[in-house]
């Protein structure tokens, strides 16, 4: 069954999109990530214009992060104060990101920058995650049990001024790295069409030393607002949010996420991280391959609006 997307202006198969939403939802439920880093490249492979894919994906992530954050709020695993501070940086970053996005689109380098950012970030995070989790798996085999990571100090970040106390996270932290992190993720969210959880979560664990139990809830909490804000800014600046596409993906995504979460409970934390790390690396290699291999067609055409206007 095909459906016409009013903003993307093309006819697509509704079941393929629904299936993509469900598959990515399954993985995101299993690993506790938003899944934007998988969905946006998938949409682009499926011929959705990159500008529409990125903006629409932000809208879809609002739904999945809201659904996830509600569950965490109920369990009390959200540090709202920390989330709000991340959000301050996130809103600023997102605004900046959408303008960078428009400018890149204008000069025709949007696709390239999206691909490069994906390759760099997915490559770095995928490698770190895979190595770290493989090490953890090896250790737990040797010791016959899970090892708790010692909350150490990561040097200069804990020496910065403007310290604030976070009761829920049992931390005293400077606001500077928090706002900077929020801002970085906000920029990436706008340009790459992701929530940024795959950067936010490791950064909170390894850089800010936030306890693992509040990391995902807090990350989801602030992603709701950053992606909601990105959706609105993309709508007003680029008019590239396709609500029909977003809705199909949302429905597929939230259903898939439920099954994914159930599957995730059956695996150990470090096994999940190793799988996610490999998945991230796989997407990175696929996108990197396209950048270096001679394309089938060197030319691309963009129609730039009717001159008569209608």
């Amino acid at each position: 069954m095909s459906i016409y997307l009013p903003i993307a202006e093309l006819s697509v198969n509704i079941w393929i999109l629904f299936g993509m939403g469900a598959a990515v939802g399954f993985l995101s439920g299993m690993f506790g990530v938003g899944g934007g880093f998988l969905m946006t490249p998938l949409l682009i492979f499926y011929n959705i214009p990159p500008a529409v894919a990125v903006a629409t994906e932000a809208n879809q992530i609002v739904a999945s992060s809201f659904s996830g954050a509600l569950a965490h709020l109920r369990k009390g695993t959200v540090d709202i104060k920390l989330g709000l501070l991340l959000l301050v940086g996130g809103i600023a970053g997102s605004t900046l990101g959408v303008y960078i996005f428009s400018a890149l689109r204008e000069i025709g380098q949007l696709d390239l920058i999206i691909s490069l950012l994906y390759v760099v970030f997915l490559g770095a995070i995928g490698t770190l995650m895979t190595i770290e989790s493989l090490r953890a798996i090896r250790k737990s085999k040797q010791n016959g049990g899970a090892v708790a990571r010692k909350p150490g100090h990561s040097g200069f970040i804990h020496k910065l001024p403007f310290k604030v106390k976070f009761r829920k996270s049992k931390l005293v932290l400077s606001v500077i790295p928090i706002i900077m992190l929020g801002m970085l993720v906000g920029i990436l969210a706008a340009i790459m069409g992701v929530g940024g959880g795959f950067i936010m979560v490791p950064a909170m664990i390894y850089l800010l030393r936030v306890p693992t139990n509040v990391v995902i809830g807090t990350s989801l909490f602030q992603i709701i607002f950053v992606t909601a804000f990105t959706t609105i800014i993309q709508s007003t600046t680029n008019q590239t949010v396709d609500v029909v596409l977003a809705f199909i993906l949302m429905v597929g995504g939230v259903i898939g996420a439920q099954f994914g979460a159930a599957a995730g409970h059956k695996l150990k934390g470090e096994q999940l991280r190793a799988l996610l790390g490999l998945l991230v690396l796989g997407v990175c290699i696929r996108l990197g391959y396209d950048l270096v291999v001679t394309p089938d067609d060197l030319f691309s055409v963009i129609a730039a609006g009717a001159e008569g206007g209608h």
Partner: peptide, 30 residues
Amino acid sequence: EWIYNLAHQQSLLYGILCVLLAIFTGWFAN
């Protein structure tokens, strides 16, 4: 036609509606 016109002529309202739809879908799933 309605969606397209809304997105182009009242883009702020359209963006807010997109967000509300997402919030509702997320809540409903939950």
